[in-house]
Structure formats: structure tokens, C-alpha cells
Amino acid sequence: MSHSRRLFRWVGAHPGLGIWLNLLPGVASLVVFVFAPLVLMVFVTFWRSSVDGMEPIWNLDNYRKVASDPMFAGLLLKSLRIAVTVTVVILMLAYPLAYIIARKTSRYKHLLLLLVFIPYWISYVIRTYAWYPILGKEGAINYVLGALRISAQPVELFLFNEFSVHVGLVSVFMPFAVVPIYLSLERISPTLLEAAADLGARPARSFLHVVLPLSLPGLLGGALMVFILTVGAYVTPQLLGGPSGIMLGNIIADQFGGTFNWTWGGTLSLMLMMVTLVVIWLVSRRVRVGQVFLGD
């Protein structure tokens, strides 16, 4: 006990050392289990797939495939298009909601906020599955349409296509955008809006020139989270997509399952990672990414 106490005191007297002792376990795990595996993944893209995964036989086959395979280009573009669409739709839906909650001063405010938080905590596998019996051929929408005699035949347009993938992704990932936008709106001082009004700005003008720029970190942070979650989505397209709603994530998973081409799977993952890094870089040119997450 006295030994550890003396050690503790000694470390306390040398803050520089204490800092690195505090960082060591976390940084070591991040280097070994995040950084190193990602570097290994880059190496693997130059290797050859084999019966037990991969062999370090260096070649450029996977990159030739990237350059020439139209399937790959189409799939990447489609995943990007879906991710961008879903992100934009979510931002347009989430911003007004965050605005309503942030402006509210009544006691319902916390309830409304909690109601946004709750889906955030519920398994997205369950929340995606929940759309299944609603959109399907014998699902709730078709049941209602049939009961109201709007359509005699069940409509098969709602499930197993790109539409259902969009619906699923928007509903599943929306809370990830509402929360950061709300936090940035909440921080805007009302005196700024009063000042704008006193100086003769109409509400629309003060929104465009005061509120919107000040909520940009939250808006971009939310967009970033939603984009990353969507572009690499697996669960939603697998469950709701059918053959036409497949995204990059599903093809990546295939390489480690039935198709068994690990190095190609690694190459596709690397492409996904590159896209993500480009988007992070674009966002970080407008706001500091650290600022988005630390909120100051």
C-alpha cells in the first residue's frame, strides 16, 4: 500500500509521465486493434486470396479489377448516390425537428428530446426488421390500401427495392442527425436573434445569416455521421433491399461468406474507407471535426 502510494505521489509530481501512463492502455489498444488492422488491410489488397483466407503473394489483380470491373464502379456509385440522398433527406427532415425542440421552453422540451434519443438506443436490426411487415406484400400498407379499396391487388412496389432501402435508412439513422443539430442550435444565444431583430432583420434573414451559420457544426457533424453509417450499410439493404437494393456493404460481406474472396473483400473495404476519408476531409475544411464531437 505504501509502495503504491509512493508511486502514485511520484507520478503526481511528474505530470508528463502521468499523462503518458494514462494514455498508454487506450492508445496501445487503438494502435494494435484499429490502426494496425487497417494497415494490414491495405497490404492484403496486394495479396492473393486462398483457401484459408489470404496468402502474401504480391500482385495487382485486385486493382486491375477495380479499374476494369463495371459491376464495381456501378455498385460504388449506387452506394454513394443512396448515401448522399439519405443524408440530404435526413438533414431536411431533422433540422426543423431539432429547431422545434431547441426553441421550445416548456416542460415538454425534455420529453421531446427524450423521444428522439430513444430510437438511438434501440437496436437498428430490430428497427429495420420492424419495417418488414409494414412494407411487404401482405404488410400493413397493402392491408390498408386493400381495405380502403384503393387497390385490388397488393402493391409490391414498397419492399425489396431501392425505395424500401431509402425508407429504412432514413428512419433508422435520423436520430444520429437530430441530436448534434439540436445541440448546436441549443447553444445559440437568444440575444443574438434579438440583436438581429433590433437591427431590422426579418426572421427569414436572421435565420439565414445568424442561426444557420452558427448551427453549421451540428449540421455537418450530423451529416458526417449519417453518411458514414449509410455508405457502409449492410443490415438495411440486406433485409429490405432485395436484389435491386444491394449496396457495397452486402458485396463486401459476400466476399467473406459464400464467395470467399478475402483480398477482394479487403479491397472493397479499402475503397469504402477512402470514400469516408474524403468526406471527413471535406467536412473538416469547414469545421474542426474535434469541435463537432467536443462541442466547443
Binding site: M41, G232, V289
Partner: peptide, 22 residues
């Protein structure tokens, strides 16, 4: 480094760890 696992798509981390284990 700390934000990296949060900003990397989950499927990419899954693949990377699979490769490390193999």
C-alpha cells in the same frame, strides 16, 4: 486516433479485425 473507430464504417473495422485474426 481516438475518433478513428467512430469515423470508420463498422463493416470496414469488421473486415480489418477479421484479417488481423487470420
Amino acid at each position: 486516433l481516438l475518433l478513428l473507430p467512430m469515423l470508420t464504417p463498422g463493416i470496414v473495422l469488421g473486415v480489418a479485425l477479421t484479417l488481423l485474426w487470420r
